[in-house]
């Protein structure tokens, strides 16, 4: 698919994501974390929202063409086991940069998680580099 600025502003419907104790535990174990509150699955490590997998309607990438360039999390409070979050995503920016390997398309995907009362809990921002078809 062609990735261009027409995608900017595209938004997903909120998706309900539950913070499960076992999921926190497995995430902490995979990192090799030693923090007891993480290993007991009580408080989630800072990058835990990466486990909330979800996409944007009509936006699919060929995995062989993408590079993960950066990631950001902002937390209003820690995520805890039992939290139920409504996560929505949007395309924040699309831009092209000339690099040593030619033109690279950068896509910035933002997400936010709110509690059932609508209070903001966290925000994330992911930057990926997409290599367009040859010649692009």
């Amino acid at each position: 698919m062609e990735i261009d600025r027409s995608l900017v502003g595209r938004t997903s419907d909120p998706e309900v994501c539950e913070v499960e104790r076992g999921a926190i535990r497995r995430f902490a174990e995979a990192i090799g974390d030693t923090e007891p509150l993480h290993l007991r699955g009580e408080i989630a490590p800072p990058s835990f929202p990466t486990t909330f997998r979800g996409g944007l309607p009509g936006l699919e990438f060929d995995k062989k063409r993408i590079l993960h360039a950066g990631e950001e999390y902002r937390h209003r409070r820690p995520l805890r086991a039992g939290d139920v979050l409504h996560v929505s995503r949007r395309v924040e920016d699309v831009f092209v940069k000339q690099g040593s390997l030619g033109a690279m398309t950068f896509i910035v995907l933002a997400a936010e998680g709110r509690d059932p009362f609508g209070e903001l809990v966290y925000e994330s921002r992911q930057t990926i580099i997409y290599r367009q078809e040859a010649g692009a």
């Binding site: 990192i31 090799g32 974390d33 030693t34 923090e35 509150l37 993480h38 009580e42 408080i43 490590p45 800072p46 990058s47 950066g70 990631e71 950001e72 999390y73 902002r74 937390h75 409070r77 820690p78 921002r125």
Partner: peptide, 18 residues
């Protein structure tokens, strides 16, 4: 993230960007 929580404790990280 582990570097920061080892130092400051679980739940202490307000922002991390890499």
């Amino acid at each position: 993230g582990q570097l920061l929580t080892d130092w400051a404790g679980a739940g202490a990280v307000r922002r991390i960007a890499v």
